[in-house]
Write a protein that binds this DNA or RNA. Sequence first.
DNA 1: TCCCTCTGAGAAAACCTTTTCCCAAATCGC
DNA 2: GCGATTTGGGAAAAGGTTTTCTCAGAGGGA
Lengths: 347, 347
Amino acid sequence: MSSDASPAQTPVTLREVAAAAGVSVATASKALNGQGRMKAQTRERIRETAQRLGFRPNSLAQSLLRRRSFTVGLLTNDTYGRFSLPLMSGVSDALVDAGVSVFLCNVEDDTRLAQLHVEAMLDKRVDGIIATGKRIDRHLPVDLANLRIPVIYAFTQPDPGAIAFVSDDAGGARLAVEHFCRLGKKRIAHVTGPASFAVVHARAEAYRDVLTEHGLPVSEPLLGAWSEAWGHDAVAKLFGDKAGREGAPDAVFCGNDQIARGVIDALRERGIGVPDDVGVIGFDNWQIVAEATRPPLSSVDMNLAALGREAGLALLSLVGGKPAEPGIRKLPCRLVVRQSCGRPPGG
Amino acid sequence: MSSDASPAQTPVTLREVAAAAGVSVATASKALNGQGRMKAQTRERIRETAQRLGFRPNSLAQSLLRRRSFTVGLLTNDTYGRFSLPLMSGVSDALVDAGVSVFLCNVEDDTRLAQLHVEAMLDKRVDGIIATGKRIDRHLPVDLANLRIPVIYAFTQPDPGAIAFVSDDAGGARLAVEHFCRLGKKRIAHVTGPASFAVVHARAEAYRDVLTEHGLPVSEPLLGAWSEAWGHDAVAKLFGDKAGREGAPDAVFCGNDQIARGVIDALRERGIGVPDDVGVIGFDNWQIVAEATRPPLSSVDMNLAALGREAGLALLSLVGGKPAEPGIRKLPCRLVVRQSCGRPPGG
DNA sequence: TCCCTCTGAGAAAACCTTTTCCCAAATCGC
DNA sequence: GCGATTTGGGAAAAGGTTTTCTCAGAGGGA
């Protein structure tokens, strides 16, 4: 019904609607926007005419007038990454209801390219920019500090005085280690990534804190690569020479899911049962990995989509003129329990 | 140098440049665009003024006038997918040099959401749309057939009469199987995904063709899920009851990298050597999986970034008014050789 | 001197919508 | 019946740029 959907070669304008309804463009505009005063009957006639002709206002013209384009730019250097994707999805989700579209710009680590994209976005009068990346402790290769439009940082290192949303890595680590404690694990090891990552230290510290709080022995975290291979090697270090398994860990908290997968595979190869002999928890909750491990991997989820949503809403609020306190907001992680961490003693 | 980069609260307009240079806006416009006639000295003075004030033309105003917005929409239903991402990257790469920005719209499988996004894009006067997805044999949940702007399909099922770019799955399968043949493999198996996927049949047929051409025995492809677990199970079926390994395969061509990973793990658990006893080749070349298998996995790459580039360039050409033949273009895959497929007999 | 052609630059329309101001007619109070 | 208010709707400016048209003056040829 409605919309004679003839493949109109050129979009119908307000002027045409007005002519068809026998009124001026001013009246037509007001009728469609619920502004101005006119007979209800006139308003209805104009509405029907617009509907019949399939009129849709030209967003470009509106933007020009309102100085508001209902577009935002999303800048990332994480092309293939699994971090920025859920985040983007959250951003988009928060914005679509406000009629805001998202320009996606991947800038790799190329300053020139980043500059190019930012200028293109400014020229197109985006209402704001969300900057995101693949690491919480690295800048994008471009300066967004004095841009005269609002900028929100998400999952990337912000400029000083800016507003940023990041995951609470320490909190996430606490979730994992405390879960082990609740399960009665006594010797909990931590195998994680390289020292060059800030999150490695944040999580390691939380790991130590929780163990101390519970009066458990703290063994130094094992730092390595973010890879399965390192998880494998770490098991050799943790369980290697021990005759029997006297002092060996009964739980391993891993810095990401790939390490966890390596750990689980290596444990199985040694005939050590997961989760009965040793519990394992990963980080990132990368579904496709977590569900492919045997048994399926319990993992800390950074709630990146939620983080993206928050960032989107914050930007929207800023664009709407509401001021906001600068600073870094840490959003909580959540523990997704599958089967690799073990069941409670009584369960 | 240049650009007194005061954090100007409002962008500088052509009118201000003109005033500062003591000319009319018309002259200023012509000076900056290399149009019209004027003294070289006048032109230069205007250029310098614009530079000094940091003038950048308002893209919205330009678009309104030119009826060309230098934006395109990228529609996908593959939020987290590893398919659409490289593809997007290729699209963006092809367009950025033309000053074209990309609206990314993820529509999941939600018709209402898709409709919403398409209308938002049309309202914003995108110059064209690229539709992509996670499957070559499925439509997006929205009709893009009569849109009065150009549409290109990439890695998704096109409407009839449209222009589409897809990977040549049969060709990709040939690459893999022929490689096995060159390595002297004689009993090549095929473990792949569910029958509901068109690519499963395309690849299986190519698999059969190549074996027949080489006079090798064809065993029926094993259809299952796209998962590691299925790769595991398939090995049981292929190598299971055989005492010794008389009739067992000496090579397995897998429908994706996860299946291949399952196959390799299962073979190792049985003490069967890869690649010496059995060669394995995967599909998709999902780097993070392919490089984590032991040994690293040889795999067929669909060249999705290149595919995205082609799609972007084709759209650009269409937007530029050049007509193009409708139809489906298949772009070649390439075989990425790592260590799982084996070395040539003489090597 | 007269007519013609360049040269250099400005005025104004166009793109499409929104909003402010304005005005004529109708209604109301008395 | 007269002034004051309300009602219904239009004219015009604004947003920033591009492009077409116009025009004054300068120079050239006869």
